[in-house]
């Protein structure tokens, strides 16, 4: 796993991908920080929360090539023919992408230092947002890796992970739309208003339960909860396992 991790991590810096991803992240975080700085009040938690919206762009960039690139070069055969555990391959690639995220995040740590040096406040809410940021990064990177494993094309992998992350980011909107639509449909069928509303609400709540952003929203206010972190980790494991199964399937097919 360490060998895979080293190879993947260094490959980010042997191609423009790593630099471009970090440059994009630096620019976006810098833009948010500078805008806050100009108002005389910097809330690092708000900056980190805003940066989460860019997962949808940055995660596909750094994960699209993790498996698709190997397929393009034909080097993926090595994973299937060498006596290594495929889960180690998946975990190594995942760690490499995660570490790149960590390096990107150095920008925000610099912003924290600047804020402190201007007698600003880096409170517990800021640290809560940072924790959530990394746990969400885990979840989304695992989705990106899965997207990269199911297709030979980097572009399709990027589009797939973009759509998946976008859907997750819009879950709260989707849930209320779906709830209202079902309630309206049931009302149209003649179901009593309160019953149809209850069904609609149950559907809204059910979809909302899957929303990691809603689950982790209190961290920025300094209210830390273990359950949302367990949610992120467990679903990250699910996607890594799915990736592992996709590779296993290909290994059988090759044999």
């Amino acid at each position: 796993m360490i060998a895979v991790f080293k190879r993947e991590f260094l490959s980010y810096f042997r191609s423009p991908v790593g630099y471009i991803a970090i440059a994009l992240f630096s620019f976006l975080s810098g833009y948010i920080f500078v805008n806050n700085f100009a108002t005389g009040a910097v809330n690092i938690a708000s900056e980190v929360i805003s940066l989460r919206s860019f997962f949808v762009v940055i995660v596909p960039i750094i994960t699209m090539g993790l498996f698709a690139e190997d397929k393009k070069r034909g080097t993926e055969i090595l994973y299937y023919t060498s006596p290594i555990d495929l889960f180690s391959v998946v975990a190594g690639k995942f760690l490499a992408a995660f570490c790149l995220y960590g390096i990107m995040f150095v920008n925000v740590f610099i912003h924290m230092i600047v804020t402190k040096s201007c007698d600003g406040i880096v409170d517990i809410g800021a640290w809560g947002s940072v924790i959530v940021f990394f746990f969400l990064a885990m979840l989304f990177i695992s989705i990106g890796i899965f997207a990269s494993a199911i297709t030979d094309s980097q572009i399709i992998a990027a589009i797939f992970s973009f759509i998946m992350i976008m859907v997750i980011q819009l879950l709260s909107t989707i849930s209320s739309l779906a709830g209202n639509a079902i309630a309206a449909f049931l009302s149209m069928l003649g179901v009593a208003s309160e019953s149809s509303n209850s069904v609609g609400e149950a559907i809204t709540n059910g979809i909302n339960w899957l929303d990691p952003f809603a689950k982790t929203s209190d961290f920025r206010y300094g209210s830390f909860s273990v359950a949302p972190l367990v949610f992120c980790i467990s679903f990250a494991i699910v996607f890594l396992f799915l990736t592992f199964r996709v590779l296993e399937k290909k290994r059988w097919a090759k044999s």
């Binding site: 517990i124 909860s225 273990v226 359950a227 367990v230």
Partner: peptide
């Protein structure tokens, strides 16, 4: 596991560190 964790342990494993 998530549903059980959330409903049984969730409230005990929530901590307020806010100002």
């Amino acid at each position: 596991a998530n549903i059980l964790f959330d409903s049984i342990l969730g409230k005990y494993l929530t901590f307020d560190f806010s100002l």
